[in-house]
Each structure stands twice: as C-alpha cells, then as structure tokens.
Write a protein that binds this DNA or RNA. Sequence first.
DNA 1: ATGAGGGCATAAGCTGGGGTTATGAGCAGC
DNA 2: GCTGCTCATAACCCCAGCTTATGCCCTCAT
Lengths: 288, 288
Amino acid sequence: MELLLAVARLGSLGRAARELGITQPAASSRVRAMEQQLGVRLVTRSPSGSRLTDAGSLVTDWARRVVEAAEEFDAGARALRARRDSRLRVAASMTIAEYLLPGWLIALHGQLPGTAVSLLAGNSAAVARRLRDGEADLGFVEGVDVPGGLDAVTVAHDRLVVVVAPGHPWARRRTPVPARELAATPLILREEGSGTRQVVDAALAEYGGLAAPLLELSSTTAVKSAVSSGVGPTVLSQLAVADELAARRMVEVPVEGVRLARELRAVWPQGQRPTGPSRNLLSLTARD
Amino acid sequence: MELLLAVARLGSLGRAARELGITQPAASSRVRAMEQQLGVRLVTRSPSGSRLTDAGSLVTDWARRVVEAAEEFDAGARALRARRDSRLRVAASMTIAEYLLPGWLIALHGQLPGTAVSLLAGNSAAVARRLRDGEADLGFVEGVDVPGGLDAVTVAHDRLVVVVAPGHPWARRRTPVPARELAATPLILREEGSGTRQVVDAALAEYGGLAAPLLELSSTTAVKSAVSSGVGPTVLSQLAVADELAARRMVEVPVEGVRLARELRAVWPQGQRPTGPSRNLLSLTARD
DNA sequence: ATGAGGGCATAAGCTGGGGTTATGAGCAGC
DNA sequence: GCTGCTCATAACCCCAGCTTATGCCCTCAT
C-alpha cells in the first residue's frame, strides 16, 4: 500500500521502489501481484513513468487510510518502546494517548526527526504524579479541573456527544433532548469508573445523575457496537465517534441544558515552562 | 493486530489462534514478537487464559483503527475483483465509493454473507448509463439533481465545509464568513473539473463565482496537506476532513449566505424498485 | 486426591513469499 | 544515434513464520 502511495506521488515504479528501499523489480512484482488479485489494472505503465488508473486511485485512496492508521500505530508503538534514554518523556491520559497523541508524534517527528519520545499512559492522577516526580517532561490530562501543582494550557475541547443508531427514534428528533430526559433514560455505558461516565454523571447531578444503565460494557468498542445495532443511546467522546458520525453509522442527538464538555490540557510542573522538545510538542498541540 | 483484537475479545491465545485459522504456538510467538519489539508486556498470561495489560489495550485500540481501515480496503478490493458473475452490481460515484461504500459492503456482508458484489466507480453520468444499460443493479450519485430516467432516494447529505489550518486567521473567527468574502478569497482547489469545485463555483455564482485559485492541485490529499501547512483555506467534503476536524489538525470555518450541500443518493432505473440484495444494501444506507 | 482438560511455552523442521542480481527491450530527448 | 530513463523477465536465495510434537502448570469436577 505504501508502494502504491509512493507510485501515485512520484509517478514511477522505480522511484517509488527506491523510496521504500527496495529494488525496482520487487516493486514491479508487488504491483503486478496486487493487480492480479484484484483483476484490475492499477497503474498504466509507460516508458516515461507510471500513472494510476481510475481504479488505481480509488484503491490508493482506500490504502491511504490504512497506511495513515498504520503510521499512527507505529508512532505510538515507537513511543512505548523508547522507555529509557528518551529526550522527551510524555505522560498522557487514555483518550489523548489513544486518539490524539499518535498524530502529534508524527508531526513532531516531522519537526525534530531523531527525537526519541517515550509515552506513559495512565489516568490524570498518575500523569500528575509522574510530572511531579520528574519522571515525565510533559503531560496531557482530560477532565474538568487541573491537578494541583501543575501549570496547564488547554489544547482542545473534547465534547461528549449523545449518539444513537440511525434507526433509533432520537435520530429523527429535531428538538434537543432536555437534560432531565437524558438523565432519566437508561443508557449503554462503560463500567463504573470510566472517565467519560464520571463526567456525564457529574454533569447530570442536578437532575439526579444517570439512570440505571441499560447495559454495562467493558470497552468503548463494545459500547459502540451495541449502539450501532440499535440497543439504545450512549454518551461518548466526540473523538471516539467521529468516523461513525461522518459515515452516518451513528447519529448525534442534540442535548439541551447540560454542558457535556471537558478540557484536554497539556500540563507541566508549576513554574517550569516547557523547553526543548516539550516546547515543540506543545506548540503543535496548543491551538486555542 | 487482528490477533491482538481476537485475544482481547476471546480472552485466550489459543482461542484467538483458532479463530484466525492458525495454531496456538504461532499465535504465542506472534504476540511474543510484538512484545519484544515494543519492550512492553501486552497480555498477562495465566493458565486460565490471557488478558490485555494497560499498554496492551492502548496498543489494541491503535491496532483496531488499522484493522478497520484494512477491512474497508478489503471489502472494496473484493468488490473490484468480483467483476463477472456477481449477484449485485453497484455503480458509484467517487466520493461515495471512497468513503461510504466500503463500510456499507461490510455491513451487507454481515447480512448476506457470500453475496458477491461488484463495484464500478465513475462520475454521475457514467453511473446513470450503467443503470440504464442494465450493467448495474444499484447506483449511487452525488450532486444537486437526479440524472433523468432514474428513481432516487437520498441516503445522506454531504456538506461541503470551508477548512483552514488551526493557525490561520479564519480559525479564530467567531462570526461566519460572508459568502461574498468567500467568493473573493483565493482558495486552494482541485483542478478544474473536480465535482467539489463545480458545486462550490455554482453555489457562489451569484457572488461572481470563485476567485482565481491560490493553488491548484491534482488530488484531495495534496489539497489537504497544503491546507494543513497553512497555505490557505479550501472547501472539501465533510467526509474527506472528518478525521482532521476531530483531531483539530484543521478547523471548520462557518460560512453565511450560501448552501454548500449536496445530496448523496441511491438511484435505480425508473419504476424498477430494488429487490433482493439491492434492497438489503439500500436499507443499510437509506436513513433520512 | 486425582485425573481430565484447557492454557501457554519451547523445540525442530519445512516451505514459499518476497527479496536480490542480471539482463533486455521500448521510448524520449539532447 | 546515443544516453538515460522507464518497466519486464528470469534465476536464485533466504529467512520469517508456519506446523507438529511435546511438556508443564493450573483449575475444576468427579
């Protein structure tokens, strides 16, 4: 797939091969193999180079999504690996580590290639402790308030959104669901202790908190698939459902009378303004 | 990665191995190899099964995104391959083929496993011709009007959105950009002939149409990367920038006084209501 | 308490996918 | 017409990753 992207970008099998560190015949045979599997010509070869066919650009676009996901995986993996002797030690809470950090690491690598970054993932308290103990240089936390002893800057606003399957009655609502009704409705939820669930519960406190859950599941994935199959509504981070919303596999339900938001913040020990690589990473993220 | 997901789901290396059609030692060694590369334990083994560690679930979450992208790739690829002798022949325009169809095909496969689906991608005119010639059973087109001789149902509304890099002045605007100002601003655009560009140009016709482009590029990817690096604003399908918006790598700019929307429609020859697999696919998509 | 069964690890051996080098043919442009 | 780029084909080679076979450990039911 990377090869396909490289061919699209460079306009020649040989050049693409060189970029990937393989030889031209290897590239040629890979592309041929893929064409054979698909039964479709992907590139038009000519003595002056190769261009994608229509089918080829469609396949390449699909491939691009895979490659991008793989690059994020890789960036994250590298950071997990580089435990010791890394120049930048980052501690991050789960949502950020999962959805945002890989992208930031890729961007950072663009600015400072060769900088070893290490990642520790944990909850906000753990992140704060690491920073205070000098075990991390920069932290990222999600939540309503900043842990004590740390300076912070907001890098993003994470909205929690109420989502349902497209067939669910709420999907057709034009008027927002009142907070009271949301509080009274049994939802599909993560198990007690999940950060998202706590935020929702707190936000709905004045309406009596969350109703008894319709279903309690142990992973975000499980929640999503239950929602998709129409079991009921849930509340999830906008980051977790962006894809589903874009493709209308799920529908966002507007809610009234409650702020389901939480700040995503970069944090560091009080007074110690980030310098060096921390500063670079921060400048990639701080945007508001 | 699939193995990791299977382990997470099934709670045992052996069971996961069986699901993937490999033997238990193979699974064991794969996981071990990955752990070695990352320098982190991913699963805690016990005589009663295996569970993911914290790092393991983080890695698994990253992996899930890769696997999902790969599954969409695969679904699309299979449809390209199954040219002849397929029970359902779909013709779709590019945006739909690229972003939505793979997901639909996966869902359809869930309902009707073993149904061979073939895909022809082209512009709206080509889709219409295929349907009229009986070369396709169901079509999907994007655009403002329905090609003649076809019945249609809207399956989604594709908003075109104005996006800029987070550092761009427009990213901080609180007030919408007036249509007149948008029309007067040089944008980064695809080359003449792109569907998106035509829609924008038409929508801004009453304000004199688009200004001379700031930059003309040949692929959506190229446009996106130019925007990200702050060159200027562009207009793209919401589907193309959902990820970037969610991660705030780009920012949507509200616009006033112009409807930048187009319908995504399923179409079929007039009077011939879809039946069989077409009907299944349609019911997966028709949602408004 | 004791066997049966499921879980995982280790070891040895084989296979083929995917690479390499070497070479040739076609076309563009100085 | 030569030079330099393109891509294709052929012959060879290697090792990553599988399988089979085995053993140990723990749990649970008899």
